[in-house]
Design a protein around this nucleic acid. Structure first.
Lengths: 191, 191
DNA sequence: GGAAGCATGTAAAGTGTTACATGATTTT
DNA sequence: AAAATCATGTAACACTTTACATGCTTCC
């Protein structure tokens, strides 16, 4: 069974991104800070491995003196990809997030500080939502217009996720705010 | 600046889990498949490092012949923990999930197969929601009754997240279902 | 007496990130 | 001519997981 990163590369090559550089650019363009990051240091050795395993073949595609290797998926690669895609194996996800760890440890904070933390977390989600809506979703929709729906599904999930997360943190902020009775006089202006 | 895993350990020790084994058990009990996993192979060396760095001190707490090391947080550790907690640094999150990668690559699937994939993803979220609601949330609430709100906040986020994710996949399922016109007769009831 | 749980650790392998190195071509 | 972009790769480091190794204690 392929591992996710191999399958991702195979899928990208199937999708028409034939060189390591092109794959990296496409992945960056479809995430800009979310879902699944990669680096050249992962891509190039992995392409070599996939080639050695017979899932893809690279042929020289140099443009003049600037060399380039274009990969294509072999029948064996297609088969392995199809098998991976249909495999129902679902390793449990992990929402690894330093912000959430802070939230879990927030008992060491005052209510005001907790509100501050929640505000930071909410703002981050709002920023990421905007990024998804303004940059990633349009890109994915452009690809979608050419018949590929996958990127659009993921982009929509990204937008929705950040909307939900921002709302969740806002709700917690409101809760903490209301359970914090001002000790004496004027409540300190908006915070 | 502490890294997340160090801060997590420091926070657990502050919270009264003094041995490596107790910390692991507590983390397992509060996640059961979500948020932040750890293993002994990570915990023990890290505790030794924190001790060497002066953030915690371990003293022998053996029970008869069964040895145990109980750690306590030093003033330097408290300071480092407080600094980490207040630090607004927010590395962008990544929703790494093999299911999402499959979704992104789903153009190689027929509509029926895509519905199957979405169904699997939804079911997984439903399972995890149940687990959170039935096991993790009660544990966190028990801890919350003793004055610690952090675990509760995270557990609630876990429940809400899985509810949202299940609903998202269900919506996509419905969309794919409706864009798949049945060749002959009745359109499937309201959706 | 055996199984399960308590308790601490090491070794090896796998995975991922950062930084570096090189060189061509296109754009400003 | 300099800067940006195209293009491929290596080396070192950091992090995580899996498997192993050891021994005690409590429960059945």
């Amino acid at each position: 069974m392929l591992k996710s990163s191999s399958a991702l590369l195979l899928g990208m090559i199937r999708g028409g991104f034939s060189s390591g550089y092109a794959i990296k650019k496409a992945i960056d363009g479809m995430r800009t800070g979310a879902f699944w990051a990669t680096t050249f240091a992962q891509i190039y050795p992995e392409l070599a491995r996939l080639d050695a395993d017979g899932y893809i073949v690279g042929h020289d595609d140099s443009q003049g003196a600037r060399r380039r290797i274009a990969y294509t998926v072999t029948p064996a690669g297609e088969e392995a990809f199809a098998a991976w895609l249909r495999h129902p194996d679902q390793p449990p996800i992990e929402l690894r997030d330093e912000g959430l760890v802070r939230l879990g440890m927030s008992d060491a904070l005052s209510d005001a500080e907790l509100r501050g933390l929640l505000g930071h977390l909410r703002e981050r989600e709002e920023r990421q939502e905007r990024e998804f809506r303004e940059q990633i979703l349009p890109t994915a929709e452009a690809i979608g217009a050419q018949g590929l729906r996958g990127p659009q599904l993921v982009a929509r999930m990204g937008v929705d996720y950040h909307v939900w997360a921002a709302a969740f943190f806002a709700r917690l902020e409101a809760e903490v705010g209301s359970s914090d009775p001002p000790p004496a006089a004027a409540p300190p202006s908006a915070d």
